[in-house]
């Protein structure tokens, strides 16, 4: 199968700090690909490189075998790179509905004029209903987003990203701050995204339970370098990985 997302020798420095050092790996469609590593290993930087917030110093990034290294951030989103943030980023003073509609807007890609004159695109309500099966809470969608609990917002951010029909979804620590039930819901949602929708998911997560549970493939980063790849079993028996973790942050 052709990879949906491929990084080829990507490097990025901030001053003297090497945040990404010759990073090469690829994500297949329909696969949940784990991205793990101790704190400060450069995981979030990598996400920012992929979604175009930073440009790599060298190396290339391919989406669907198309070089997107020089494509601006918003165009990458339109080409199919969705993402969520460590702390969910919503419009604080807007309703839940408006917040979710941003996802559908991205899927539609009408431009402002057509949208203004009422052109209808993908069916927001139907799709939302489908996705909301996986999360176990309800809301009044005229409420402000602040009416929701933190864990609910994190789940909703994944839902919003899925509403935009991405090819690749970058998911940054979805389990942090969630209770066990919510973590299960998130896993079900991510599994659905990968298996039923064929989205390639790149997942940063500190919860090893979750990583071991749903990832087919894992990349381990330490100080910006890839120190191990493979399936969960391979990674967890990899000497370099164990050292990196035990040497620094057992918790991670």
């Amino acid at each position: 199968m052709k990879p949906i997302l491929r990084l080829d020798k990507v490097c990025k420095r901030f001053g003297g700090v090497v945040a990404a050092d010759d990073v090469t790996f690829s994500v297949l469609p329909g696969e949940v690909h784990g991205l793990i590593g101790p704190n400060g290993a450069g995981k979030s930087t990598l996400m920012n490189l992929i979604s175009g917030i930073y440009t790599p110093d060298s190396g290339k990034i391919f989406l669907d075998e198309q070089d997107i290294s020089d494509v601006p951030s918003h165009m990458r989103a339109r080409m199919g790179i969705g993402r969520t943030f460590q702390t969910p980023r919503f419009l604080q003073r807007s309703s839940i509905e408006d917040n979710l509609l941003l996802g559908t807007d991205l899927a539609n890609q009408f431009g402002y004029l057509k949208s203004y004159f009422g052109k209808k695109g993908s069916d927001f309500e139907k799709e939302l209903k489908e996705l909301m099966k996986f999360v176990d809470f309800t809301f009044d969608w005229e409420d402000d987003i602040s009416a929701l609990a933190y864990g609910q917002r994190k789940q909703l951010e994944i839902v919003r990203s899925m509403l935009s029909h991405p090819k690749v979804m970058l998911v940054d620590e979805p389990a942090a701050g969630l209770n066990n039930k919510e973590i299960d819901d998130v896993m079900a949602l991510l599994n659905y995204a990968a298996k039923e929708r064929g989205i390639g998911i790149l997942l940063i997560e500190h919860s090893m339970d979750m990583i071991m549970n749903i990832c087919e493939d894992i990349v381990v980063l330490s100080f910006g370098k890839v120190i191990g790849t493979g399936c969960p079993a391979e990674v967890s028996s990899n000497e370099a990985v164990i050292e990196a973790y035990l040497g620094r942050d057992v918790n991670a």
Binding site: H74, L101, Y112
Partner: peptide, 22 residues
């Protein structure tokens, strides 16, 4: 409309707005 939502996204966080294709 989409324009209003995009503007609201820009107001709150330009980076997040970009990753939403704005």
């Amino acid at each position: 409309s989409q324009l209003g939502r995009s503007l609201a996204a820009i107001r709150d966080n330009e980076i997040a707005a970009q990753t939403l294709g704005i």
